[in-house]
């Protein structure tokens, strides 16, 4: 039987091949589009930032999104690519303390930043309280949206703590409540195809309650 290491090597080779085919496809497409002349690929750029506490240096095509840098450059596959257009939240990471869609920002725009992905929140034997609550409350089915949901949820509680209002906050000048309506509104940028929403709200509510 193949060892985990061999499987990992094969998986990487397969990924590299997929990326190469995609590149050929892109070139063919570009040649076909006669309105805009083909442009040479730009030279790679260096960028250094901290991911999950570790300093990282990358040489990247400036077109690389932060999402692709994390997944393909650093092999941190926890952060997911759903729509790649800011519409689903699967790619949510925490950048300098704030949740963002990593698919809609370029990696080269973030020198010196501190990035936290799902891999940095907790580990299988030392789960972050939010990860543990998602497990306890079945806050997922297929799990594809889950890393984004959890990163988002951790940041949502910090946003409420910091007094940042939301669309459903009745009094803009008072501290926002920690009720289900607030949690639902604030989590609306994370879509779950499996519809695990009610359990997600329960999981976040439990962590919020523990904190309060």
């Amino acid at each position: 039987m193949a060892s985990p290491r061999e499987i990992e090597v094969k998986r990487r080779a397969l990924m590299a091949a997929t990326v190469a085919t995609a590149a050929v496809g892109a070139v063919a497409q570009r040649a076909g589009a006669q309105t805009t002349p083909a442009r040479a690929a730009p030279p790679a750029m260096k960028v250094s930032f901290t991911v999950n506490g570790k300093p990282r240096d990358l040489d990247l095509d400036p077109r690389t999104t932060l999402l692709d840098a994390l997944r393909e450059g650093l092999h941190l596959g926890g952060t997911k690519k759903g729509c790649d257009h800011g519409q689903c939240g699967a790619c949510t990471v925490i950048l300098d303390g704030r949740r963002i869609n990593s698919c809609l920002t370029l990696a080269v725009m973030h020198p010196g930043s501190e990035i936290t992905t799902i891999e940095g929140l907790g580990t299988p034997d030392k789960l972050h309280p939010m990860q543990a609550a998602f497990v306890k409350h079945d806050g997922y089915q297929c799990g594809y949206c889950t890393p984004g949901q959890i990163c988002s949820a951790v940041a949502v509680l910090a946003e409420i703590e910091a007094g940042i209002p939301s669309h459903v906050t009745a009094d803009l000048n008072a501290k926002p409540a920690l009720d289900d309506a607030e949690l639902r509104e604030r989590m609306s940028g994370n879509i779950c195809r499996c519809g695990a929403y009610s359990n997600i709200v329960e999981a976040i509510g439990e962590v919020a309650g523990r904190k309060a």
Partner: peptide
């Protein structure tokens, strides 16, 4: 929030928390 609340309200009605952060 205090003096130009219509602006806070309009912003909070747009996009998502992640998008508004950028």
């Amino acid at each position: 929030r205090r003096d130009h609340a219509v602006l806070s309200r309009a912003l909070l009605a747009g996009a998502s928390g992640q998008l508004r952060n950028r």
